[in-house]
Amino acid sequence: MQRIALASLIVVSFTGAAQAQNRAVTVGDHLVAIEMDRLGTMPIYPAQVRDGRKGGTPISFTHVAVEKGDYKVLVQNNGARRVLACIAIDGRNILNGEKVGRDYNELSAWQAPGKAPATS
């Protein structure tokens, strides 16, 4: 059993309907959106690259239009199972700064023993 920072855990939730399609990406039970402090959730556009798979993991590609300013990443789990959300921005794990390569579909790519923030 592993201890995971709550900041990266999405607790099971059945509440909250999916947002407008162009303001979030919703696939199956999971929703992801980018929210800027000044502008709210930002418009999302389908990528010219088609969605694909990586090692059996379905991958969704999209573009999001943004401008300078503070923002948040919003993640919602509408499924019955708890999930762990791992996030990389500009190629770096937001929790420990470690580089996340192309194996983002594998948990080992996100684990950096001894470098994660205190979790005990």
Binding site: H30, V32, I44, T57, P58, V64, V66, N105, L107
Partner: peptide
């Protein structure tokens, strides 16, 4: 060990 889904955004 394997992700159920991955979202990739280009911003």
């Amino acid at each position: 060990r394997n992700a159920a889904r991955a979202f990739i955004f280009h911003y």
